[in-house]
């Protein structure tokens, strides 16, 4: 016993070092899961508040651009609404209240683009009806998936995450594929599973597919920036430019699928 005591006293520096490193690595290993642990969640209130103060200061200087963006979006929505009323008013009753999705507007309080795994924190949480696995979009395109919710805040796994995979389809030919992120540039993603008979042009539009478990169908993902045909592999690759500019992200919408429980229970029957 005395020897053990002496050993610990003599090597306390190294022992403490190993202990702290093991704790760090365990924490890190746990956080590699898609759903993160509650340690971050509990601190979200303090951290979220500090980020919110900081972004409030920054937002004050960007009010002009934010207003312009919202006005533009408003105009676009009005235009779409008029088309719907024109073509569908005789067939569907638009006022039935049978909407598929509810859009919850939220403000970005913190966002990073330069890590290997980027997360976004927004100022809406469980209190506002936000739940895990909801999809998040901006005015321009898709943004990410809600991974953690506290009472007032939620964190979103951004598309700029090494584990992010989005099921997409090409607008021109309905072919489906998946978009991943290459951890070095926040503007570009990559599609690695394009069948050989498909040839893409620069600027081709990429939308979310109906096979995506998270995103509703037909949301804007991005456009093709460069197409890489391969002779050896069975699959072509393409570099894509995200429609969302993650560096200037301020306002986002969280999409609540109102029929989720219904579709989930149907899917469960097949599995």
């Amino acid at each position: 016993m005395y020897n053990l005591q002496r050993f610990i006293l003599k090597h306390h520096f190294v022992i403490l070092f190993i202990l702290l490193e093991v704790i760090s690595i365990l924490l890190l290993a746990r956080s590699q899961n898609f759903h993160r642990n509650s340690l971050v969640n509990t601190s979200n209130v303090v951290v979220g508040k500090i980020y919110e103060w900081s972004s409030d200061v920054g937002n004050y200087f960007r009010l002009n651009t934010a207003n312009e963006q919202l006005a533009e979006e408003n105009a676009m929505l009005r235009q779409q609404l008029s088309i719907v009323y024109d073509t569908a008013s005789c067939v569907y009753d638009v006022n039935e209240g049978d909407t598929l999705y509810e859009y919850i507007p939220a403000k970005v309080v913190n966002n990073s683009t330069n890590q290997a795994n980027n997360y976004i924190i927004i100022n809406k949480g469980a209190r506002d009806g936000i739940e895990r696995d909801m999809s998040v979009i901006s005015t321009d395109g898709i943004v990410g998936v809600v991974t953690d919710v506290s009472r007032h805040y939620a964190s979103i796994m951004s598309l700029l995450h090494s584990k992010s995979v989005v099921g997409v389809r090409f607008k021109n030919n309905q072919e489906i594929a998946s978009v991943k992120w290459q951890t070095n540039n926040y503007r570009y993603g990559i599609v690695e599973d394009i069948p050989t008979h498909i040839v893409l042009q620069q600027g081709d539009t990429i939308l979310t597919s109906s096979h995506s478990k998270i995103f509703p169908e037909d949301l804007m993902v991005g456009t093709v920036e460069e197409f890489y045909p391969t002779a050896v592999d069975a699959l072509n690759k393409a570099k894509i430019r995200y429609a969302t500019d993650f560096s200037t992200l301020r306002h986002v919408y969280v999409i609540k699928d109102l029929h989720k429980a219904e579709t989930d229970s149907l899917k469960a029957k097949f599995q």
Binding site: F17, L27, V40, S43
Partner: peptide
């Protein structure tokens, strides 16, 4: 806590 990466900076700074 701020960057949402538990253990990452802790491990590096301890070393």
């Amino acid at each position: 806590l701020f960057t949402g990466t538990p253990g990452l900076h802790a491990g590096a700074t301890t070393l």
